[in-house]
Lab assay of single mutants.
Amino acid sequence: MSIQHFRVALIPFFAAFCLPVFAHPETLVKVKDAEDQLGARVGYIELDLNSGKILESFRPEERFPMMSTFKVLLCGAVLSRVDAGQEQLGRRIHYSQNDLVEYSPVTEKHLTDGMTVRELCSAAITMSDNTAANLLLTTIGGPKELTAFLHNMGDHVTRLDRWEPELNEAIPNDERDTTMPAAMATTLRKLLTGELLTLASRQQLIDWMEADKVAGPLLRSALPAGWFIADKSGAGERGSRGIIAALGPDGKPSRIVVIYTTGSQATMDERNRQIAEIGASLIKHW
């Protein structure tokens, strides 16, 4: 067993022997301040990774656009098919120029040779490549099948209805392509620590998230040296922004954090800054 596999296998073990965790309302004060600064709703939840206990939450059962955070769930569904012998990570998928959609920095470079399922998941999570996500959605049967996968996990809230990039439209009061912070946090925890996926697939999923290259201005910008984070960000229309993450000190994750916002007129930089400040408060009061 590799060191990384050992780390993920012992996530519940280490967490069980940690000192009790206590909620700190100071972080919620910052979440509410972010709402004021952005002029928009902000949803927040913080779960203990081992027990699933909610440590703090704000608007945990209000719907927010998922945006690209759905790509972690998508690759979880792909990995479940791999575990069941219905898919192979090494299978190569070929596609054409007509398949390319807006923001496809990886797939646009491989029109000639195609990409493997493993490479597509890596591109979808680490670079948020939209064509990679659409190609992977095709392998599982489309958005409705991802929703069905989530329902089978016990998540009857999260739903995907459309493809990239239309799913980022974020129309107010439109339930399409949305989740709730509580539902997303619980589902992410199941994917990373539950028995739904094999140990190898859980490790692969967290490795992809740990290698995320496009979430630097968010929670990662607030992390002290030595902290662990595996995350996936999302951005959408109407001032929408979000991030889902597993993080913790001492090089291992111990909490799940989900943050979503929508309806702001603020710039992307300002949305990023507010999420980073929430992260800084979380870490300060850990």
Score class of each variant (00 low, 15 high):
A148L: 14
T193D: 09
T186A: 13
T198I: 08
P25K: 15
I243N: 11
R255V: 13
R273Y: 09
M127V: 11
G242P: 00
S221E: 05
A200C: 15
D207R: 08
M209V: 02
K284I: 15
K30A: 10
R241H: 08
S80D: 14
R63I: 14
K213D: 12
L136I: 13
L137N: 14
V29H: 13
L167N: 07
E195L: 01
M268I: 15
G263M: 06
I283R: 03
T27Y: 11
R162L: 09
L218M: 11
S221N: 05
L205K: 00
A170W: 02
C121V: 06
A235R: 14
L89N: 04
K30C: 13
S68C: 02
A133K: 01
V258P: 00
L100S: 14
L160G: 08
G194C: 09
A246D: 11
T112E: 15
L196Q: 11
Q88T: 11
D129P: 00
Q203D: 02
P65T: 07
M184D: 00
I256V: 14
K109D: 05
R63S: 10
T193K: 15
E166Y: 14
S104P: 11
L38Y: 12
G216L: 08
I229K: 09
V78R: 01
L191R: 01
P253K: 02
A266I: 02
V29I: 08
E108Q: 13
N173V: 08
D99T: 03
T178A: 04
I278S: 01
D269Q: 05
L150A: 07
E237H: 14
G236N: 03
S254F: 13
R63G: 12
L89W: 08
G236D: 06
I206T: 12
F228G: 14
R81E: 04
D113C: 03
G251S: 13
K53I: 12
W286P: 04
T198W: 05
R220H: 13
E195V: 10
D155K: 01
Q88H: 08
G279W: 06
D269P: 07
G39M: 04
E35C: 14
V72C: 07
I171L: 15
G236W: 02
M127F: 12
I259D: 00
E270G: 06
Q274E: 11
A77N: 04
P105K: 04
P105L: 06
I125Q: 02
D99M: 07
L160W: 05
S68Q: 00
K190E: 14
F64V: 05
I243Q: 13
K252A: 08
G236S: 09
K30Y: 05
D161T: 07
T112S: 10
G76M: 07
A276C: 09
R189H: 10
W208F: 11
A245K: 00
A124N: 06
I125N: 02
Q204N: 09
D212R: 11
S233W: 05
A183L: 08
V31D: 01
H151I: 10
W227N: 01
N98V: 11
T69S: 13
M115T: 05
H94N: 03
I278T: 15
W286R: 05
L100H: 07
G52F: 07
L49S: 10
G194S: 12
I93N: 15
E195S: 12
L136R: 00
G142V: 06
V106F: 15
L160E: 09
L191H: 03
S264I: 04
C75I: 10
I244G: 07
D269E: 06
Y103P: 04
Q88K: 14
L282Y: 03
D161M: 04
M180C: 03
F149W: 04
R159F: 07
C121N: 03
V257P: 00
C75D: 01
M67D: 13
A200H: 05
T261H: 10
R162W: 06
K32G: 15
T147L: 10
V72H: 11
I256Y: 04
T187Q: 15
P165W: 05
G248H: 13
R220G: 11
G248T: 02
L219A: 10
L247P: 01
M153Y: 02
H110N: 03
A245I: 12
I243G: 01
D99Q: 05
G141W: 06
R241T: 12
L79H: 09
T112A: 14
G39L: 08
G85D: 08
D83H: 04
E277W: 04
K109E: 05
K71D: 00
A276T: 10
R202M: 09
I171M: 15
F70K: 13
H94A: 03
N152Q: 07
T262Q: 09
I229E: 09
I206F: 04
G194M: 08
T107Q: 01
S57M: 02
E277M: 06
R59Y: 15
L79S: 07
D269H: 06
A84E: 05
G279F: 05
P253M: 15
S96H: 06
L150N: 07
S68W: 00
S51V: 11
R118N: 14
N130V: 01
A40N: 02
N98L: 12
G39N: 05
I278P: 00
T112R: 10
G90S: 10
I171Q: 15
S104E: 01
A235E: 14
D212N: 15
L218E: 06
G263D: 10
S128P: 00
S96G: 12
R162A: 10
K53V: 13
G234I: 00
A245M: 10
N98T: 08
Q37S: 07
V257K: 00
A235Q: 14
T179M: 01
V157Y: 15
L55A: 12
L74Q: 03
W227T: 05
L150Q: 03
P217Y: 11
V82Q: 04
K30P: 08
E26K: 03
G142H: 09
L205H: 01
A280F: 15
L47P: 00
Y103H: 04
N272D: 12
K213T: 03
I283G: 03
N152M: 04
P217M: 07
E169G: 05
E26F: 14
I93Q: 15
H94K: 03
A215Y: 10
L196Y: 13
A235G: 14
Y103I: 02
A170V: 02
I125M: 04
G52E: 13
S240F: 08
L205C: 12
R162Y: 09
M180W: 03
T262N: 05
M268S: 10
L188V: 04
M209I: 14
E102V: 04
S51D: 11
R202T: 12
S281Q: 10
R273T: 08
N272Y: 11
M209P: 00
T198P: 06
R159S: 09
A133Q: 00
N134R: 12
L55D: 11
A77L: 07
R63H: 10
P217F: 03
A124S: 13
E119N: 08
V82M: 13
R202Q: 12
L28T: 09
K109S: 04
D155S: 07
L197G: 09
H110F: 15
S221P: 08
R41T: 06
E87Y: 12
L192K: 04
H156I: 09
D269A: 05
W163V: 08
V78H: 15
P165H: 15
D33K: 02
Q265V: 07
S122N: 07
E277F: 03
A40Q: 09
V101H: 03
M268W: 14
L197P: 06
L192Y: 05
A185E: 01
P65S: 08
A266M: 07
I275E: 01
R41N: 12
Y260F: 06
D231T: 11
T131Q: 10
M127P: 01
A215E: 11
T179K: 00
V31I: 12
G236E: 14
A132D: 00
M209G: 11
E62D: 02
Y95V: 04
R92Y: 14
D174I: 13
Q37Y: 04
M184W: 01
E119W: 15
V214W: 12
R255E: 03
T158H: 02
L111N: 12
I93G: 13
V117T: 07
L38G: 13
A132Q: 00
A215G: 10
G52D: 07
Y44R: 01
E169T: 05
G242W: 00
E145C: 15
L188P: 00
